[in-house]
Every structure is written in C-alpha cells, then in structure tokens.
Amino acid sequence: MRLFLHELRGELRLYVRSRELAFFTFLLPILFLVILGSAYGDEEIEGHLGADYLVSGMIGYGVASTAFAGLAIVLVIRREEGILKRLRATPLPAFTYIAAVLATTMIAFLVGAVCIVALAVTLFGGHFPKSPVSLAVALVLGGACFAAIGIGVTTFLHRSEGASAAINAVYIPLSFLSGAFFSQGGFPRFLTIAADIFPLKYFIDLVAAISLEGEQIWERPVEVAVIAVWGLAGTAFALRRFRWVPREG
C-alpha cells in the first residue's frame, strides 16, 4: 500500500507534467464541450436541451481519449523508451505499478467528466444528471473497460513514433461514428455498423439514458454487458500479451 501510494503520487505528477498528453486527452473533450455548447447549448436536440445532450457525448469522447488513447500512448512510449524495462529491475511489483497507472487514468477521466458536467451546468444552463449514483457506476465501468482495451492495444504497437497517430486514427473516427459529437442518425448504415461493434456507442447510450432519462444502470443490461465483455477481453489480452521491454531487447 505504501508502494502503491508512492507510485500513484509519482504517476499523478507525471500526468500533470506531460502537457501535450494532458491537452489532447484531458482538455480536448472539455474544450469541445465549450465550443459545441456555445453553438448548440440552448437549442433543442432530440427533445433535450442542447447542453444536456452534449454532456453524454463529450463524456464518451473523454473516456476514449483519456482512458483508452492517453493510457495506450503513455504505455507504448514508456515501453519503447525502456522506462518500463528499467522499472522491472526495481522491487516495485508489476501489479502495483499497473494499479497506480490505472488509478491515475481513472482519476483523470473522472475529473474530466466532473468538469464537463459542471461547465454544461454553469455556462449553458444544463441540468444536473438525473441519476448520479448510477452515473458514477457507469463512469467507473466505462473507464475500466476503455483502460483495459488501451493496455491490450499496446501489444499491437511496436514503436513510440507514430503510436499516437495510430491511436488517434482509431478513436477519433470511432467517436464520431458512435455519436459523441452528433446524433448517429445522419451517418450511412455501413458506417454505423462499425460503431455497433465497439463499446463506445453503448457507453454513450448508457450515459445518456442515465443522465437524460433518469434510468438506473441495471435497466440497461445490454449496454452494460457489451462494455463489460470488451473490458474483460481487453484484460485477458493484456494479461497474456503485455510486454515490458522494447521489441528489439
């Protein structure tokens, strides 16, 4: 526990210090909320106030950028630069290290989500989410699932250069197709099929159902199941294939 807290403090410091990463993965969803909110915040979208409607999409974009993309990019860079390798020579247990990295990611994502809700309420007259406890559970579930997939994805990337480009090429289009920015309605069917496979759409739908309609998380078993299955698959993959050392050594 002492080691976990020590590493968590270190990881939080590293997160705050890495400006580029913090901007792209943490601030960008918040920035998009402000931009889109200024344009559509007071309009009515699908029967809801624009500001309220945007919240679930931006939280969805946030989970993909913070928990999935940010985590995957950091781990690939650390692995390829030999930082993970060096850590393996210290007494810090692998489990403790991963736990601290995951906790940092979760904290960043949750702080981001709270900022999104707070800004929607204060700047654009949005409403407080309807079922806050269910929402909190859904956020933790989503954060864990996307972080697990993020760790799993590191096994496909072999160089730190280009890692962030490859990751961005996956999650940014997927965010659009999953309805993070606009309703999915306008996209052609063959594109939305791709979104139906991945968990992001289900996460956004789940968050929308909870925060807009006031449903509870157990009323959405399909969404929860898809997210959980992806999370478990990512975890299983990460456990079997995760590497601590760069490919050539």
Partner: peptide
C-alpha cells in the same frame, strides 16, 4: 531486486521530472 542495481546499455527516463524527483521516485521503491 532490493539487492541489485542496474544501468542498462540504452533507455531513457521520464523527461518531465527533475533529477531530484526521479531519484526520490526510484528510491521510494526500495
């Protein structure tokens, strides 16, 4: 691992930490 120390042939360190911070971080593992 408590009892060994390692300098690898290549590899870098967290660029955004200071010398003192990085040594405190690694020292804390022991």
């Amino acid at each position: 691992r408590e009892r060994i120390g390692v300098v690898l042939q290549s590899g870098s360190l967290y660029p955004q930490l200071t010398v003192v911070e990085i040594l405190r971080l690694f020292g804390g593992y022991y």
